[in-house]
Amino acid sequence: MKQQKFAVTVDDLTVAYNYKPVLWDIDLAIPEGVMMAIVGPNGAGKSTLIKAILGIIDPIAGSVSIYGKPYKKQRKLVGYVPQKGSVDWDFPTTALDVVLMGTYGSLGWIKRPGKKEKKTALESLEKVGMLSFKDRQISQLSGGQQQRVFLARALAQDAAIYFMDEPFQGVDATTEIAIINILKELRKEGKTVVVVHHDLQTVPEYFDWVTFLNVKKIATGPVKEIFNDDNLTKTYGINYKVSVQK
């Protein structure tokens, strides 16, 4: 077996908001090219883990590296899809404008997006099937369409690793399938995808790697090996039974 390359490594990561730790001593290594789900009950720190990796939240202790270097030096390799509910969709702007924001990182300060950035944004909208909505005010999009716009914005970042916070929350079946197809496309291109996921039933179908999280890391590894009732019970604290499709 060839030497496995890690896209993301997390060491001893601990995060606390007040006194109670939200994440406790997390060690995690995400191999390059996997499609990984982070699962765990509400308040398990799933979103917090992503936010700490991306530097949105300052951890109490621990370190994060992206391909061996600190996040700050590797920003351009990382794309992010926040929870849809984290922004005000009544903000006066269009779908295309939101997707253009994905190019701001590579532009840096002051420089405005030009033709090249616009082309990237339009291509990203096309990939998620939203090109015809490019000039639509974002409040007039449905929940699923808003989620696709967020996905397109991350695609416009043209990253190597994608972090997504519950991209399937509140979207209809059509959008869910559209999104998962895009994620599979990304994996084919050799990119790493990390998704905070709620629906345990679809884990074996969508993902090849999984991390069980409940403040502490319970387990991480290939879905085929570790997605079992034992780990689910340890994570969710009740006797959990799901029919794992082998």
Binding site: G55, I56, Y80
Partner: peptide
């Protein structure tokens, strides 16, 4: 629009 996202972009 999205302060957290702006932060991840640097």
């Amino acid at each position: 629009f999205d302060a957290d996202y702006a932060k991840t972009l640097g």
